[in-house]
Design a binder for these strands. Structure first.
Lengths: 336, 336
DNA sequence: ATGAAAGCGCTAACAC
DNA sequence: GTGTTAGCGCTTTCAT
């Protein structure tokens, strides 16, 4: 196997273990020559310190946990990219945990994080999370937590999101500006922060523009493609909305599918806009008007804040909302 | 902070540290009553074992590393999903490392993995990886490695891939069957295993069907969207191929972009097929014929094999190629 | 400038 | 059944 450790280096060089340890960490009270000898041998024998021994001793793991609902999703994939870009820079390691949008799994996973496995947590909560005890327990354990995207608003820490309310308002307004009189909303679970905000933006835009808020035009999707498909189909058949603001891209794709089946034309019969990070939005048929979120930046920012807190001795994370703006990109699906 | 550890439990219960340790691990030589007392208190105090102390002692970390070129890519995102599904089941932790397709980063990253941070490695190598010393070093350190997708063929271990050669042959044959006389190939780096195989499949299909192999119809893309765009544009302008087999979806999207700019019609002027895991393939304009890889299953299989090796005492991984079949899904982009 | 020794939290022989 | 003890590999006082 391996077993080239500090002790071995010390034996070979006829030095004490502590001298070698200090030399490797470039301590001031080790002579230059000794340091060089140690480093040379370490390189030669391809010595790598055992991170866990060090973690155990220092109560620092140099690793963070990233907890997200899913990964096969452009948004989260990009966010991880952002997180990883900073982690790599700061020499941190990144543990990934998927909740599959299930609180039970989320709770089970957070248990693993007590006991020092990680120094901090980045999380986008599952849509079934209503009780935050498991997260508060992490905090009590001394773990700084930064939320991103799907945040717990009542949680006293930093939350990084996009301007969900404003963008939703804008999206709905855009539909209205393009001539929609009856824009519907495909909503996320009301449990989650961003679900609520997107809904609010939709409603406020209707109200401000003299349109009625019709409950039957608001569909709560369930993140099951088949079920969502049926609900969207029913909406289009019965309510006949002339525009749809989808809270997430998956629902908009559902609309595309339903329209194809029902022979409805986008944007003629119904216009479509949604939050999305699809690379292929402009190649869809028709190309899809999106609210593009700065997913990479959100991940990066959340990670940067967490690491800044970890750098300090006392990582008091302020209760703060950091908002990065999304961008409305108009394409064919909302043409007048 | 925290500091509820075994010692504390032992003190409170007036037991020895080892008794508590054994009780928690449900050892046979601890009485039922003692076990219950210990477990009850552990739960009450929300005790979580320090994983690193245990790792240090047992030389097992219960974590694996997943090294991939990128993550904002449906293929790898799905693969991670597969990996994670097994890891969660087996109670393993997953560290993610991105190489951004750069060997230097790959080498730097692998250094972190010596010294016991992980028990095993799943890797899809970067396209600039030609020297495998850094990977062999991991192996020498006693770390089992399983390759998936972008494998090192000469490396003596398990490699999980899709049937790249056969699928590429089929893809090219499909273009020919649909009437193409001059199918071009947008190729990946020749360094990587799958790049070579996809190229081979393309060439063999041409040969078997009496078509000449024309070097000018083979474009080596570089994974820079702008540069690739220009090369594809030049190809379409100068060589005027009537079909394109793209080795990865990103190149096919490039073709869509170029065709739009040059006012070329797909599939009339040029047919397009590619390896892809795009959820939106069927909604593109025109819908895209794809070779869909079993990405989730590939990740899952690779992870399953790694864990099987880790379960045993001696994890000799055989030199073996595991091949999961891809599926050709015909859509509009290759209609005759 | 270097070394000795204690200990991070846990496990596993081995006693009793 | 339960306790004692000796580490895992490393860091960090505190001596020298």
């Amino acid at each position: 196997m391996e077993s080239v450790n500090i002790k071995k280096l010390a034996q070979i060089l006829n030095l004490s273990i502590s001298a070698v340890s200090k030399a490797l960490r470039d301590s001031h009270d080790i002579s230059k020559e000794t340091k060089e000898k140690v480093i040379a041998l370490a390189r030669e024998l391809n010595y790598q310190p055992n991170p866990y021994a060090s973690s155990l001793r220092k109560h620092k793991s140099k690793t963070i946990a990233v907890i997200i609902p899913e990964i096969a999703n452009n948004y989260f994939a990009l966010a991880i990219n952002g997180i990883e870009s900073i982690a790599q820079e700061k020499n941190y390691h990144v543990l990934i945990y998927l909740t599959h949008d299930d609180v039970k799994k989320e709770i089970a996973l957070t248990k693993y994080l007590h006991g020092g496995r990680v120094d901090g947590v980045l999380i986008s909560v599952s849509s079934t999370t209503t009780d935050y005890t498991h997260l508060h327990q992490l905090e009590e354990n001394g773990l700084p937590i930064v939320f991103f995207d799907r945040v717990c608003e009542s949680f006293n820490t930093v939350k990084v999101t996009t301007d969900d309310y404003e963008s939703s308002y804008l999206a709905t307004k855009h539909l209205i500006d393009q001539g929609c009189k009856k824009p519907a909303h495909l909503a996320m679970s009301e449990n989650i922060s961003i679900g609520k905000k997107r809904m609010k933006g939709y409603i406020q835009a209707l109200t401000d523009n003299g349109l009625p808020v019709d409950e039957s035009l608001i569909i709560k999707c369930v993140n099951d493609d088949k079920q969502d498909f049926e609900m969207i189909k029913e909406l289009l058949l019965k309510q006949k909305p002339d525009g749809i603001f989808a809270a997430v891209e998956q629902y908009a794709l559902g609309v595309y599918g339903v329209c194809r089946q029902l022979n409805l034309a986008i944007p003629k019969d119904v216009k479509v806009i949604c939050f999305s990070n699809l690379k292929t939005a402009s190649f869809l048929n028709p190309s899809l008007t999106t609210i593009t979120q700065p997913a990479f930046e959100i991940g990066k920012e959340a990670a940067a804040i967490l690491f800044k807190a970890l750098d300090k001795k006392s990582f008091q994370l302020k209760d703060e909302n950091i908002v990065l703006k999304s961008m409305l990109v108009q394409r064919e699906s909302t043409e007048a």
